[in-house]
Design a protein around this nucleic acid. Structure first.
Lengths: 171, 171
DNA sequence: ACCAGTTCGTTCGATTTCAAACAACCCCAG
DNA sequence: CTGGGGTTGTTTGAAATCGAACGAACTGGT
């Protein structure tokens, strides 16, 4: 079922269906984001902090170099430096010398960090359910996954001429 | 087609399909957001600025009170105060005394603001296309709209006990 | 008129964010 | 071994963000 409002990109504006989808997307992502942030903040973690911990907890030896983290999480490097210091002060994470390259140090998850992830992850999953999946049918879950995957794929392939910065010292 | 990985919420974790959808959602929204921000920033506007201007441009007489803006856009009030000053300096908006209530002043879009919206809106639409709709089939556009609408509906109905704050002086 | 109680928006303070410049280091050709 | 070119992560400085406290102004009852 394709209605007239779906078919062509009319001139310079969005079709009705696109308009509706866009508005829902904007406020939806905003509301979902707010909900997830709230749950994490109660544990003293920013959403990015959780990303860092989760990424490390899945890495081999629970360690990654800072640049890898930045690239995977698509965060600017100075931001990671700052945030990592904060996590260090909480004892969730620590640095370790890289034996082969004195420039870079490994970012490793401490045992306390592992505990924190074990504690927070289920809460976070519950938040994700409450914010997203509880309101969707299984079919819609699949659709959402394919849609966002297509978007990522489309953007990544369409702009690799602008590289994958997240670097700042790159003139 | 429903595979075993789709059906039940297994215990305390996400199904494979949910896992995939969630990851795609997180990085997808992040990437899309970055893309849109970039286009607006080239005009000296933050995404919230654009929201403010767009909201005002659709309001009767192109004016709203600050509290209304805060509520509609779901932004904290001090944030709006600050951002609005910035927009005032650019000449895109201005305040006007409310004749019946000396506390509050109207936020109105100037002619320059109208021009700015007219200039930026098409660019923004193009960004939205480039970031989102260009990568989706018409069917997927409809799916996305319904999915996000369901999410908003679900969340709003599920937590209206926590009111619609965005206020800060509320003890 | 007058005094609580409420609502409106601003100000203050501490934190967060990030682009640009920077220092340290690796690699490799000459 | 030495020096250019590319990498890695940090420092810096300015701007943004937002919770909490604040003052000013409307409201309704007495």
């Amino acid at each position: 079922m394709i209605s007239m409002s779906d078919v062509p990109p009319p001139g310079q504006w969005l079709s009705d269906a696109e308009q509706q989808a866009w508005r829902a997307y904007v406020t939806g992502t905003s509301v979902v984001g707010r909900l997830l942030d709230r749950a994490l903040k109660a544990r003293g973690l920013s959403p990015e902090d959780y990303g860092i911990l989760a990424m490390l907890s899945e890495a081999p030896d629970r360690q990654l170099r800072l640049g890898e983290l930045a690239a995977q999480l698509r965060l600017p490097k100075p931001f990671l430096t700052y945030r990592f210091q904060r996590l260090e002060q909480s004892g969730l994470v620590e640095r370790r010398q890289c034996p082969t390259d004195a420039r870079s140090a490994f970012c490793v998850l401490t045992d306390a960090g592992v505990e924190m992830v074990a504690l927070v992850a289920p809460e976070h999953v519950a938040s994700v359910r409450g914010a997203l999946f509880d309101h969707l049918s299984p079919a819609q879950v699949g659709q959402l996954g394919r849609i966002m995957a297509a978007v990522i794929e489309g953007i990544d392939s369409g702009e690799n001429e602008c590289e994958s910065d997240c670097e700042t010292g790159a003139p």
